[in-house]
Structure formats: structure tokens, C-alpha cells
């Protein structure tokens, strides 16, 4: 097996909400161009860890972070780094899709416009491209200027994917991105993600073990704010080393 090349790395990462500690001394690496899944029971800190990777944790009231998160070796919590630049590096798929209150076209063009990524005449082509990558183009090509809220929820999630890809990120973060979708839409998203790992580093939070078995190349198992076990998916999921991981994978909690 090829050697793991880290894209994201956390060093002694701790996160607090007020006086409760949500992450305890998390030091992990997330390999480039692979799907990494963070699994664990609810309340274990999976989502908090994900939020630390694009500094979304700062939006929570009373939240505090210690330690480092390095993306390509650069600490995103350094005072010299602009938060908008950090967030631009990663596309986010939330639990449920939130299309912006504008047309389908403008949703995808939004990121390119606010960052002035492309000259005006290229935007149309780029929107088409990203809608194709997200597997939505065929369904919406005749109504690009209709409000995005008219799409089904599964289509909206793919629109959010296209919107996120349009700012040319290197990373895709997903917080249980299929949990609000019907099984067919969920498969659709999963299929896209597998295709996209060639070009992007993908980090997903999931509490569905089967999904982890289907998608993950690399798995991080968390429990009570700590990382218990991390490694190649096959090893962790079929031959876990730690007893807590064993218990979780055999469905004990």
C-alpha cells in the first residue's frame, strides 16, 4: 500500500463549549485524496472535530479551541490566516441542504462571484461544469433561473455540492450529508463523493457503520471527545485493536 500523505493534521486539538470539554487532545492525520470517515456514538465530538477543520467552531457561542490544525502544513488558527480563506479551502455539506435564497444558477455562481474567481463571461460555463460534476445538470438545465428552493431535497444537496465545488476547494467536509435524504438520493451523493476523491480530500462524519464500510478509505473512531483508534478503514472496521472500537463495531452502543 502506498504511503499516506497527510493533507490535514491536528496537533493536541482541544475544544471547549463554555466549561465542557468537547475534544480532548486530538492528534490525527487526514490523508490526501481519500475518504476519511469520523465515526462514533452521538455526542462523541465527531461534528465538533469537523467544525474545527473550517473554523466553524468559532460561530458557536463560548466555544474555545486550543492546539493546531494544519492544512498543507499551515496552522489555520494562526492569527495571520484569514478565516474566509480557510473556509474557501473546503466545501461543506451540512446535514440538510440550505440553498441560498436565489436561483439555481446564482447558487453555484455565488462563491465565484464573492471571491471574484472568474471573469464574468466564464461563469456560465463554470456553473454548467460544476452542476455536471455534482450530477445535477441534466435535471436542472432547463430551469437554471428558477428558485433553488423548488428543487427536491436530494437535488438541493447536490446543488450544495456544486456550490461548494465552485469555489475550487481542496477538501470536502460532510456532516452526515445523507442523513436527511431518501435512500436513492443518498446513494447519488455517495456515488459523487467516491468519484470526487480523485481530486479532493474528503472528510465525512457518519454514524452509519454500513456507510463507513461502503465509502471509507480511512477511519477515525471517537468516543467521549477522544480519538480511540484511527487507521486504514479495512483494518479498523474488520480487525479493531481497541476494545471500545470492537464494542462499537459489533453494535454494543
Amino acid at each position: 500500500m502506498s504511503e499516506i500523505s497527510p493533507h490535514i493534521e491536528t496537533q493536541n486539538l482541544c475544544a471547549y463549549y463554555g466549561s465542557t470539554q468537547a475534544l480532548e487532545d486530538v492528534s490525527i492525520i487526514i490523508p490526501r485524496n481519500q475518504i476519511t470517515m469520523i465515526i462514533g456514538p452521538s455526542g462523541c465530538g465527531k461534528t465538533t472535530l469537523l467544525k474545527c477543520l473550517n473554523r466553524f467552531i468559532e460561530l458557536e457561542e463560548n466555544a474555545r479551541v486550543e492546539g493546531k490544525v494544519l492544512i498543507d502544513g499551515e496552522n489555520i488558527y494562526s492569527p495571520y490566516v484569514e478565516v474566509t480563506e480557510v473556509r474557501k479551502k473546503s466545501g461543506l455539506l451540512a446535514q440538510r441542504p440550505y440553498p441560498l435564497p436565489m436561483s439555481i444558477f446564482d447558487n453555484v455562481a455565488y462563491g465565484m462571484r464573492i471571491h471574484r474567481l472568474r471573469p464574468r463571461h466564464e461563469i456560465e460555463q463554470a456553473v454548467r461544469h460544476y452542476l455536471q460534476v455534482a450530477g445535477l445538470w441534466e435535471e436542472v438545465k432547463d430551469r437554471l433561473h428558477a428558485p433553488a428552493s423548488q428543487l427536491s431535497i436530494g437535488q438541493q444537496q447536490r446543488l450544495c455540492l456544486a456550490r461548494g465545488l465552485a469555489v475550487q476547494p481542496e477538501i470536502i467536509l460532510g456532516d452526515e450529508p445523507t442523513s436527511a435524504l431518501d435512500p436513492i438520493s443518498a446513494r447519488h451523493i455517495e456515488k459523487r463523493l467516491v468519484e470526487l476523491k480523485e481530486r479532493y480530500t474528503i472528510v465525512l462524519v457518519s454514524h452509519i457503520l454500513r456507510q463507513a464500510r461502503r465509502l471509507a478509505d480511512y477511519v477515525i473512531f471517537m468516543y467521549m471527545g477522544k480519538v480511540i483508534e484511527a487507521g486504514i478503514a479495512q483494518q479498523v472496521l474488520s480487525a479493531p485493536q481497541h476494545e471500545k472500537t470492537q464494542a462499537y463495531i459489533s453494535g454494543e452502543f
Binding site: 460561530l59 474557501k88 466545501g91 461543506l92 462563491g111
Partner: peptide
């Protein structure tokens, strides 16, 4: 206005003002 809508805009690297202007206020 749902918090998730603001997050959707912020996640793209929008500033707070851009988020207010394009996502929150129209809603």
C-alpha cells in the same frame, strides 16, 4: 432565518456582511 443558511454562505468563505446581504436579508 435558519442558522444553517448563514453557515451555508460562510462555508463558502463569504464574509459576514456578504452573508447578511445575500443570504439573510433576502430571506
Amino acid at each position: 432565518v435558519p442558522f444553517g443558511l448563514r453557515q451555508a454562505s460562510l462555508a463558502l468563505g463569504a464574509t459576514r456582511w456578504q452573508t447578511v446581504k445575500y443570504a439573510v436579508l433576502p430571506k
